[in-house]
Simulated assay, not measured.
Amino acid sequence: MAITVCIVDDTADIRHALEEIVRLSDDYKLLGSFSSGEDALQKLPVLQPNVVLMDINLGGISGIECVRRLKPENPDILFMMCTVYEEDEKIFEALSAGANGYILKKTSPAKLLDAIRELSEGGAPMSTQIARKVVAAFQQKNSTPDHAVSFSTEGKLNTLSNRELEILELLSKGLLYKEISAQLFISQETVRKHVYHIYEKLHVNNRIEAVNRYFGR
């Protein structure tokens, strides 16, 4: 079944380019495309897409505010911020509002589609540049001696196999399933199975929570 997608972006050229990327793939279906947050607030609850590519700077109501208002009433809609912003404040504000992923507009079409699929399969895709900032923030907040890591977190990590720890480390660097499979010479399906077991063992639901555990939070 095709993954249904909606796009919210007030820049016509970028919006149309994203529309084409989605339309040209048989595995994805474009349900709607909107130029304002106000329009998105009205239409998205009706359309109920699997994934929304949401710009941050929309002129009127921001993309972050849209997510903050829509997510509580529409928990099944997955929001991926698709933006030019790399500022730490914007990243964490978007994630706190309920965004499930964060990808830069300069991302290639193939990687964008991979990220949409990963999001729909329970992942939390982030562009490598964004992931580095998230990881750096976790590391800064956890600049404590190794022995200070909580016993419960350490115990959960100890339940992971060497391969699972290896994959978790690559997830923490922002790599997509496709990139992990290429680096470890295993199939994407095998990566997905390992990630499922990682989430299960760590009692988390997505990449961000798993990375959080990885750094002892």
Rank of each mutant, 00 (worst) to 15 (best):
residue 4 T to V: 07
residue 6 C to Q: 01
residue 10 D to H: 11
residue 11 T to Q: 14
residue 14 I to T: 08
residue 15 R to D: 03
residue 16 H to E: 14
residue 18 L to H: 05
residue 19 E to S: 09
residue 24 L to Y: 05
residue 25 S to Q: 08
residue 26 D to P: 10
residue 27 D to S: 13
residue 27 D to N: 13
residue 29 K to G: 03
residue 30 L to R: 07
residue 32 G to N: 03
residue 34 F to Y: 09
residue 35 S to N: 11
residue 35 S to A: 10
residue 36 S to R: 06
residue 37 G to W: 00
residue 40 A to T: 05
residue 45 P to Q: 09
residue 47 L to E: 08
residue 49 P to Q: 11
residue 53 L to N: 02
residue 53 L to T: 04
residue 53 L to R: 01
residue 55 D to T: 06
residue 55 D to W: 09
residue 58 L to D: 08
residue 58 L to K: 02
residue 62 S to L: 11
residue 64 I to V: 15
residue 66 C to Q: 02
residue 67 V to K: 00
residue 69 R to C: 03
residue 76 D to C: 08
residue 78 L to E: 04
residue 80 M to I: 13
residue 88 D to M: 14
residue 93 E to D: 14
residue 96 S to E: 12
residue 96 S to P: 04
residue 97 A to Y: 02
residue 97 A to H: 03
residue 98 G to H: 06
residue 101 G to T: 03
residue 102 Y to D: 00
residue 103 I to G: 04
residue 106 K to T: 13
residue 107 T to K: 07
residue 108 S to N: 07
residue 109 P to V: 12
residue 110 A to K: 15
residue 110 A to I: 15
residue 111 K to N: 13
residue 113 L to T: 10
residue 113 L to I: 15
residue 115 A to Q: 02
residue 115 A to L: 09
residue 118 E to G: 12
residue 126 M to H: 13
residue 128 T to F: 11
residue 131 A to N: 02
residue 131 A to W: 01
residue 134 V to K: 00
residue 137 A to C: 15
residue 138 F to D: 04
residue 141 K to V: 11
residue 143 S to L: 12
residue 143 S to K: 14
residue 144 T to G: 13
residue 146 D to H: 14
residue 149 V to Y: 15
residue 155 G to I: 08
residue 158 N to R: 15
residue 158 N to F: 00
residue 158 N to S: 11
residue 162 N to Q: 13
residue 163 R to F: 04
residue 164 E to G: 11
residue 174 G to A: 10
residue 177 Y to Q: 05
residue 179 E to D: 08
residue 182 A to G: 15
residue 184 L to D: 05
residue 189 E to S: 11
residue 192 R to A: 05
residue 198 I to C: 04
residue 202 L to V: 01
residue 205 N to Q: 15
residue 205 N to F: 13
residue 207 R to F: 07
residue 209 E to V: 01
residue 212 N to I: 02
residue 214 Y to D: 02
